[in-house]
């Protein structure tokens, strides 16, 4: 029974028709005359990052990382994490979860009844979760990390230029 008075804008109700979800792999041509395009039989759908990163579209969420606690696992501030809620949470996996209301990304380790969340940065300490006293809820397992490559600062650039200068053949 719906718990509301206002009508829902129809734009927010989407009918799902699985029969319409058909990717068309080959290019159909209506060319009647002339030399046929020899590549036509080989035309395929262009590669799509979504297909690579997202296994369960209905259970996948994107989360932005903040802070440097996972820097050794290549998760930098501003990295976009692809989080799959359909996967099983196992010890050793990187997960996104809420601990007492705060959203965090850490490595999950189960130790008996205790859950421990390990950062991957030597400057941070692990987080102990007590099942009775702490509020703990898992969003999902991190399956991909999307980051921009780090930029060189002026010193690194200068070092590189110096290297070229000193090693260049006279």
């Amino acid at each position: 029974m719906i718990d509301t008075l206002d009508p829902i804008p129809p734009g927010n109700i989407w009918a799902i028709d699985p029969s319409e979800r058909v990717p068309i792999p080959f290019y159909l041509s209506t060319v009647q005359a002339g030399f046929p395009n020899p590549a036509e039989n080989f035309l395929r759908q262009r590669l799509n990052l979504q297909d690579l990163c997202v296994q369960h579209p209905d259970a996948t969420y994107f989360v932005e990382a903040a802070g440097e606690s996972m820097i050794e696992d290549y998760i930098y501030p501003g990295s976009i994490l692809v989080v799959d809620a359909a996967l099983l949470v196992e010890s050793g996996k990187i997960i996104v979860c809420w601990v007492n209301g705060a959203c965090t990304v850490k490595r999950f380790v189960r130790y008996g009844k205790l859950v421990v969340l390990f950062p991957s940065n030597a400057h941070y300490t692990p987080l102990y979760i007590h099942p009775e006293t702490d509020q703990f809820l898992v969003l999902g397992v991190v399956v991909r990390i999307v980051s921009k490559p780090p930029r060189w600062d002026s010193d690194q650039l200068k070092t590189a230029q110096d290297y070229v200068r000193t090693h260049r053949r006279e």
């Binding site: 719906i2 989407w14 699985p18 209905d58």
Partner: peptide, 24 residues
């Protein structure tokens, strides 16, 4: 709306025929 459409789509994993009747 987005969670609703995720739910409807998820239900197709369990049944071939799904009729979204309202947002929930």
């Amino acid at each position: 709306g987005d969670l609703s459409s995720r739910l409807m789509s998820l239900l197709t994993n369990f049944a071939d025929h799904v009729e979204p009747y309202s947002i929930d």
